[in-house]
Amino acid sequence: MSALTLKLKAAPDQRLDLSALSPAKMATMSQSEIENLAIGTGRRPVKLGDLFAISGTPGDTLVIDGATARLDGIGSELDQGTIIVEGDVGAYAGRRMKGGRLDIRGTTGPYLASGLRGGLVLAKSAGDLVGAPRVGERFGMMGGIVVIAGDVGERAGDRMRRGTIITKGRFGPSAGSRMMGGTLWTETGFGAGPGPLMRRGTLIGPSVERLLPTFGDAGLHDLNVLRLISRYFSSELGDLAPKPLPAKVRRISGDLATIGKGEILLTA
């Protein structure tokens, strides 16, 4: 396995757009082409080689070392290979990713995995609107898996249609807003008012800070689908998978302000 490493030389004075960086694309580029990639977002043009020390061999892995919250769009449209990020990242990391693996070993800004289609996104903790669509887009996440070790900001899974967001920590307020499918799974709990205007989809967790009045308690259930979900993620994620779900859960149906086919499954 060959890897190309980009090490940030100094804190950037503007936000940087790293959406053009992908292991597969860079494997076909010469050293000078890589150094001349435009990554600036301000009036002063910035090239990759200006701010990053580039070492290693282009291949299926890209390592970004010393990252900061001013680096946006890392892993955008990634369809194969691995990107490892040491440090924090800005907005839109993993935006519309289709495959491969984005491993962020720090905190992310908003819109992590925005419109994700496939692949695996890992992060230590995440900002608001994980998986959400950009303004004007119809759907948020359409597939793939996001695993966050710590807490997540507000409205994770907004307009989500398919895929899964898992956190060992806690989802912030209004997780699963306008959700149309897919799964949010927390091992710690949900913040206030999860699932506003959700039509379908599944929120799984031990507790909810405060339920919306448009959600109804549907009582205890023994759902085979939980075994299916547990086993799927156990085989897919190995050690990263959450603990298997219990046999019985309390089901809260909603949002009854819409068609109400969504559910919050309380595991404790």
Binding site: R162, G181, T202, Y232, K261
Partner: peptide, 13 residues
């Protein structure tokens, strides 16, 4: 009309 689907990977249940 109360049926729902759950897609896990490339399999839908």
């Amino acid at each position: 009309g109360n049926q729902t689907a759950k897609k896990l990977g490339n399999r839908r249940f």
